[in-house]
Design a protein around this nucleic acid. Structure first.
Length: 234
DNA sequence: AAGAGTTCCAACCGCGCGCCA
DNA sequence: ATGGCGCGCGGTTGGAACTCT
């Protein structure tokens, strides 16, 4: 539909349900096409973001634990603002969530310790980004004016920076219940001889026209050939 | 109670990368 | 070689919710 105005802003419950249904059935692929097929007046990008950050199964939405906080701090020291990389070490957390947490958390801590020009727990490896003055003077704007960095209260400052960080978990990469479900579904799909009937049945959805079906499947055989993990990030 | 200020987070934006025709 | 597309990433913003005065 050319010229159709795309919706922006907060998602409605109805849109969430619609998106969930179609992503569950069709997989995390071809977001633009998925948005069209699902009848969502949203950009593919917007759909992807909504799914990844909010609707995806196994996401945690509660407050961060002390352990998670320590992992974030440790990994941020190592990698800097590589939020997606850091988030991969925290099952159920998204890069957006980690990023937001870091920003709000840091500012909070910083206000407590706001004194002088020194960074109280500035590590040796500031060239890696974490706790560097450059980072702290984040030009992000309104939330970040003139702060100094304090020691996060849940982190013990040790000479060897020896926080215990969880390595990226196998669970996260290959064994989430959801992925198993999707893998099963994909395997099942590979056996299916009639894709349209299959989707109509499982999604309780009827492709209104050959066009809507081809929007999704034309020149693309991913549905039957895709064998990688949907959680593979690399 | 109410207005001002602050915090938080969902969502958007722009950019860059990889793939493919 | 290159241009288009899909996607992921990090940075930024708008506004609701909360806190303060």
């Amino acid at each position: 539909m050319k010229g159709e105005i795309l919706r922006k802003g907060p998602w409605l419950q109805e849109e969430d349900e619609q998106l969930t249904t179609f992503v569950t059935c069709l997989g995390e692929r071809r977001w633009d096409s998925l948005a069209k097929v699902a009848g969502l007046r949203r950009s593919g990008k917007s759909c992807r973001l909504r799914w990844m950050n909010y609707l995806r199964p196994n996401l945690k939405h509660g407050p961060f634990s002390v352990e998670e906080e320590q992992v974030i701090i440790q990994l941020h020291q190592q990698w800097g603002n590589k939020w997606s990389k850091i988030a991969r070490s925290l099952p159920g957390r998204t890069d957006n969530e980690v990023k937001n947490y870091w920003r709000t958390h840091l500012r909070k801590k910083a206000r407590v310790v706001k004194q002088g020009d020194e960074f109280p727990c500035k590590p040796d490896n500031t060239e890696q980004g974490a706790f560097s003055e450059e980072n702290m003077n984040d030009k992000a704007g309104k939330d970040y004016d003139q702060i100094n960095l304090g020691c996060p209260e849940n982190v013990e400052e040790t000479k060897d920076n020896s926080f215990q960080a969880c390595p990226p978990s196998e669970w996260e990469i290959t064994s989430s219940p959801y992925e198993i479900r999707i893998s099963d579904w994909i395997a099942e799909l590979q056996k299916d001889q009639n894709e349209i009937e299959y989707y109509e049945y499982h999604c309780n959805y009827s492709f209104q026209s050959a066009e809507s079906y081809s929007t999704w499947f034309d020149s693309d055989t991913w549905a039957c050939s895709y064998s990688g993990s949907i959680w593979d990030m690399n």
